[in-house]
Design a binder for these strands. Structure first.
Lengths: 192, 192
DNA sequence: TTAACATACATACAGATTGTATGTAAAGGT
DNA sequence: ACCTTTACATACAATCTGTATGTATGTTAA
């Protein structure tokens, strides 16, 4: 069968990313060797190093994919909420659902920051999942007549709290407790 | 000179931990090789692998040291504050000061969780730095007549926010803005 | 259509790294 | 003084990563 180059590239990159994703989740970035990855994908290391400059670049592709999926799931879930408060809390639940997909907390919250740096992860977060939170907070501030001068800071702090909550929930903590506490935090910052 | 074995062990472990700390901060855990570490310490890899089962164990020793120091600095700073609110905010500032020591955010917030796992780091945090925050929150809740049923959860969420703030401040954000926002969060959860 | 080139992938190789095995010297107990 | 244990150094085997090189397949233009 004759396949175009762009098609070959696309399927090969997809296969490598999928195989790498599984192993990175299972054993972590550091303990996953490139021979394992290409074995799982049924190819050789030549393909990997042709499509990615190094192992870290492959990891970055996995992370970017995952961040995009999380963002998409959140946005598709937070369709229409009655109030700004509800929009934020619905978004929070959608975020917890998205991070409940096995391995995502490890990829996005543990290995990602260590391997790619917190700056790179911050950029990804801002580009993807934090956008809707920030929009929600902006509305909330507007509705409660609060000055939005610390909007970015509150977004950052709450995003960090959500991340920690996702980690705790995965470790066995009560999701309901964390959702209640987050609701208290949201209500707390919306008082004038 | 004749030195006892326990004395030799202590100085050697200290030298290895100090050398490793510097390199882990400078280049990260993954990019620091054990030959470099022992070179910096002026010994051989034999000494390292005699005192630590592997590279990760040496890293764990560095992290434990650092977490203890942070905890000590916080406790020595938060001597006596007028109110529970002040105690928490003073503790927050002390935490920011402690994490402003170069490399600590990388050690404790980036490499630590990735290398040792978030469970291990959570245990360290609970044993050390989060204890005073939890005590402060308990007082705050008592003073404002709030039910303390979510005390652990709020402690966790706020600790995560503090960590993110420390990272942001190191990346160049306004420390004052983050302190103001944190004060708002604290005040928000203390309303009945 | 085919010669010329670029892209996709495989194989081979060099350097470096980790952990272990083994050897030696110093300390501790009897 | 002897024997055991601990502290450390050296030597070795098994990886792993990135690069260099080789081959096949796709692309382009005369």
């Amino acid at each position: 069968m004759r396949r175009s180059n762009s098609e070959r590239t696309e399927t090969m990159r997809g296969a490598l990313i999928r195989a790498a994703r599984g192993l990175f989740i299972e054993k972590g970035y550091a303990d996953t060797a490139t021979p394992e990855i290409v074995n799982a994908a049924g190819v050789t290391r030549g393909a990997l190093y042709h499509h990615f400059v190094d192992k870290k670049a492959l990891f970055a592709a996995v992370i970017a994919d995952e961040a995009r999926k999380v963002s998409e799931e959140i946005e598709s879930a937070s369709a229409a909420s009655a109030t700004a408060r509800d929009a934020i809390l619905d978004g929070t639940r959608a975020y917890f659902d998205a991070l409940a997909v096995p391995g995502r907390t490890r990829l996005l919250l543990l290995d990602g920051p260590a391997v790619l740096g917190s700056d790179a992860m911050r950029e990804l977060d801002e580009e993807y999942s934090e956008a809707s939170l920030k929009a929600g907070l902006r509305e909330l501030f507007a509705a409660s007549g609060k000055a939005p001068d610390l909007l970015d800071v509150f977004t950052d702090l709450l995003a960090a709290a959500f991340d920690r909550a996702a980690l705790a929930i995965e470790a066995g903590a009560s999701r309901q407790d964390y959702e209640r506490a987050i609701a208290v935090l949201i209500d707390g910052i919306s008082v004038k």
